[in-house]
Amino acid sequence: MRAEARIVAAGDGRGGTRLAVLRGESPLLLRRTGRPADGWATVHLVGGAAGPLRGDELRLDIEVGPGARLEMRSVAASLALPGRPAPPSRLTITATVAGGGVLHWLPEPLIAADGCDHIAVTRVDVGEGGRLLWRDDLVCGRHEEPSGSVRQDTMIRYGGFTLYRHELAVGPGAPGWDGAAVLGGRAVGTLVAVGVGLPAGPAGPDAAVMPLAGPGMLATAVGADIRTVAGALDPLCEQPTLAPAV
């Protein structure tokens, strides 16, 4: 299956956010939800089919203009499934956040079902003065099943420089992924924050908040299951409403 979705959020000039484009197709269906009053636009990914399945080629483009505030969530975890023998499924997300724009990407976890083969490519470009919270949670296998293969390939740039470059591979074909260097458990979550201060340092036994070399922070948590990860990262996502810098 091939599917594309696109969102363009623009400042309406009165402190609010207008969705100039909101277009999706199954399984990338988008719905505007809640919070229209406080200047934010909230959009949920509502899914529409099981998957991603092997062979799927999915694309999501997000554009946040100056003064716009967009929060993206999903209604349920997405489940990467094996499907028929085919090349890996791939979800490519590109996002640009202009100076003065704010993007929160706070979806539910991705679950790597046994036998799946999935690649998630994320490219985010934040202009100087833009703000970002970017969360990615991954669960390696459903309850008591081995993990499928998932590769995450993430690059977040700020003001034209690469701020955060990270790849993570789990499942068969990723040596040592569940050992004591990489995950040591079956769940992991990351939260990259740009223009948003987080309290640096250890954040529980298997989590830490780290100032990046450039202007941004990363919170990472690992755990036996997603509850531990959520316990460490959820509070950090509840940032006081960010006024866009003008």
């Binding site: 390939d153 690059m155 690469t162 470059r165 990270h166 790849e167 993570l168 591979a169 004591a180 260097a181 990489v182 995950l183 040591g184 992991v188 990351t190 340092g201 250890p202 298997d206 989590a207 830490a208 780290m210 990363l218 990472t220 948590a221 690992v222």
Partner: peptide
């Protein structure tokens, strides 16, 4: 190009290092 070079991360090494430093 530098952006295309391998970037495989190890979350537990990052977390462990931050704890260790304290």
């Amino acid at each position: 190009p530098v952006d295309d070079l391998p970037a495989a991360g190890a979350p537990l090494l990052d977390i462990g290092a931050e704890h260790h430093a304290t």
